[in-house]
Simulated assay, not measured.
Amino acid sequence: MRLVLAVSVAEIRLRSRFPRLVWGLTPDARELRCIQSELRRLECDPEFAAEWRAELAEGWRRVEFDQALLRALEGLPDGGGPS
């Protein structure tokens, strides 16, 4: 309970002393509404959800490819540079 109170007091002091800093660290209501609407669309629209999952899978495949390429280049004796 004391920890919760201490965190609350620290938050109040930060907001009063550094309002611009705290404002910059917290998402605004417009951003939250955009995220919530996209989540609702993911839940309600199966076609949009399928496209979103396909895009996510493609991005993940690119990350895995880049990691595999870096591992392969690190394994070359001359560091992978041109001969």
Rank of each mutant, 00 (worst) to 15 (best):
S8F: 10
P77C: 07
D78K: 14
L21F: 09
E38P: 01
L69Y: 06
A29V: 09
P46E: 10
E43C: 09
S37K: 07
P77A: 08
G80K: 05
R13H: 08
L14G: 06
M1P: 14
R61D: 15
I35L: 04
L76D: 00
L25T: 02
D78C: 13
L76Q: 14
R40W: 04
E64I: 00
R30F: 09
E43V: 07
A6R: 14
R20A: 13
A72W: 04
R53L: 14
L70C: 08
L42A: 06
L73G: 06
A54L: 07
I35K: 01
D28H: 13
G81W: 06
G24F: 08
E11S: 06
A68K: 04
A50S: 11
R71P: 01
P46N: 02
S83K: 14
F48L: 02
L5K: 07
A57W: 06
P82M: 02
L56T: 11
R33A: 15
D78V: 08
G75D: 11
W60M: 15
R33S: 13
E74G: 12
A10M: 07
F65N: 02
S37V: 01
R40D: 14
Q67I: 11
D66I: 13
D28R: 11
M1T: 09
A6N: 03
G24C: 02
S37E: 14
F48S: 04
P82A: 01
P46R: 07
E11F: 08
E74Y: 02
S8C: 13
G79F: 01
P82Q: 04
A57T: 11
E55D: 13
V7S: 06
Q36Y: 10
V9Y: 04
E43M: 05
V22E: 02
S37L: 12
G79E: 00
S8V: 07
S8A: 14
V7I: 14
V7K: 04
D78P: 06
I12P: 00
W60G: 03
R53P: 03
